[in-house]
Design a protein around this nucleic acid. Structure first.
Length: 277
DNA sequence: ACGTTGACCTGTGTGC
DNA sequence: TGCACACAGGTCAACG
């Protein structure tokens, strides 16, 4: 599910609803999603803490708590973080329930079971998550074309797998990479070192554009709308997708038909006429 | 260095 | 309607 726009939307929801709240208790229903520390240490360490700030780094949510602790959440493919009234029945895919001092709950759900959390000392987060090895955040004001260009230097592989690599750029995933490559009219299997200056500039603009549009539209709830924001609402960006999961449908810009291929093990959607090798 | 594959997990969308 | 069967917004490790 969540790529940069979805995680950012959830982060903003947390800033609105949860920052300033105190955690009164927690129940860990699926202990194996917790990387560290031991479950009993996690539960006792977060109880009584106040949520002071919520950051995002690539697709990680960083929930900074009082006392120098940071609760790290990665939603992986299909995780949901929901702000709910406590009376709702606990679905079997609920992995963690965190109780807040206003009587509300945060619930982490994931049908696939891939979501992961951990609790770290705040001053060790950067090192523990290897954040210094991550690429720049494409929606930062200082993400210039020159910076983008420098990330592509001396790279030889196909452009789509490169853009999915969080060490190159932070936050892109399968949806927004396909959409950005379509917008830039670049075939996903093009070799990066074959892209000329104009193509690189188009790709830079497209990456920033699709991510910003995704945030404006509060994320993409594709296929049954598995992605939800903090309040359980679907995003709106699925209505704006040009190629993603649109195989067999007409290209928005030519007489061609959107095709589906597999690249790097991921489903990939593109227009074979607009995006040629 | 690059590209592919499988593992992680389990529900659900899709097509027959 | 029922049933089998890919398939999923991500990451990581192992292999050729």
């Amino acid at each position: 599910m969540p790529e940069l726009p979805e995680v950012e939307t959830i982060r903003r929801g947390l800033v609105e609803e949860v920052v300033g709240r105190r955690i009164t208790g927690a129940h860990l229903l699926a202990p194996w999603i917790l990387k560290a520390p031991a479950p009993e240490d996690f539960l006792s360490a977060i109880a009584g803490r106040t949520v002071e700030r919520v950051d995002r780094a690539a697709k990680y949510l960083l929930v900074h708590l009082s006392g120098g602790w940071t609760w790290v959440i990665h939603l992986m493919l299909e995780g949901q973080l929901l702000y709910v009234e406590p009376q709702g029945p606990t679905k079997p895919d609920t992995m963690l329930v965190v109780e807040l001092d206003n009587g509300m709950q945060l619930r982490l759900r994931d049908v696939t079971g891939y979501a992961r959390i951990q609790l770290l000392r705040t001053d060790t987060v950067r090192e523990a998550l290897k954040l210094d090895a991550f690429g720049p955040e494409p929606i930062d004001p200082d993400f210039t074309f020159e910076l983008f260009q420098s990330r592509l230097e001396r790279r030889k592989g196909m452009v789509k797998p490169l853009l999915l690599n969080q060490q190159v750029l932070a936050g892109l995933g399968n949806i927004y990479v396909d959409e950005a490559l379509y917008r830039a009219r670049i075939h996903p299997a093009r070799k990066v070192n074959s892209l000329d200056e104009a193509e690189r500039r188009r790709l830079y603009e497209a990456v920033v554009h699709v991510l910003e549009e995704g945030i404006k539209n509060r994320g993409t709830s594709a296929r049954g709308g598995r992605y939800r924001d903090l309040w359980g609402k679907k995003g709106e960006h699925q209505a704006h997708l040009q190629v993603f999961r649109r195989e067999g449908q007409p290209c928005p810009d030519c007489d061609g038909v959107v095709e589906k291929i597999t690249l790097g093990g991921r489903s990939t959607f593109y227009c074979p006429y607009c995006q040629t090798l």
